[in-house]
């Protein structure tokens, strides 16, 4: 698993996330190296989300939104596509392959298509290889520890505030 390229999938709640769910219900097989992250709409996506994912060493990112014309919020998926294109320009300037990032459109009824999309990205990344920005295991553990400490501190602060009020 550690050797496989890791894919982050930003999925719209109204289509791709449901399609991923359907793919699971249908017992469809698709590569296991994808991590799904639900968004209320792909229009929520900003360029910095995408770049931050790559900065943290993710090997590929797929953005899956509704079919064009079918966005629950009218044009969120169209905006997302433009932001994906802009992020690709940044990746090219940085020196990272823009192909590591791709946007797809599908409907909530397309479980098989979700599985296919993950397959397409997985194959593409198998060719591109792991991201040169992928941190070593020690750094990953350190980052996780730092985030855990930060969350603990925030929670402790919240509890403290709660007690005071």
């Amino acid at each position: 698993m550690e050797d496989e390229p890791l894919i982050l999938a930003f999925c719209c709640h109204y289509c791709a996330y449901a399609a991923a769910d359907l793919a699971g219900s249908m017992r469809l097989q698709y590569p296991s190296n994808v991590r799904v992250l639900r968004l209320p709409c792909t229009g929520k996506l900003e360029v910095n989300y995408l770049l931050t994912a790559f900065e943290h060493g993710i090997d590929g990112v797929l953005v899956a939104g509704c079919l064009e014309g079918g966005c629950h919020f009218l044009e969120g998926n169209l905006r997302a596509r433009k932001r994906v294109e802009r992020a690709k320009v940044f990746l090219e300037e940085i020196g990272l392959e823009p192909e590591r990032l791709e946007m797809f459109n599908l409907s909530s009824a397309e479980g098989p298509r979700f599985a296919k999309i993950v397959g397409i990205m997985s194959q593409r990344l198998a060719k591109l290889g792991k991201s040169p920005l992928r941190p070593d295991c020690q750094t990953v553990h350190q980052n996780i520890q730092a985030m855990t400490d930060q969350a603990d501190a925030a929670l402790a602060g919240a509890k403290h505030d709660c007690c005071r009020s």
Partner: peptide
Amino acid sequence: EREVGILGSALRMALRLA
């Protein structure tokens, strides 16, 4: 703030790749 964040990410990645 957002653009500074984007440039920060981009620059850190570009420097690491270099």
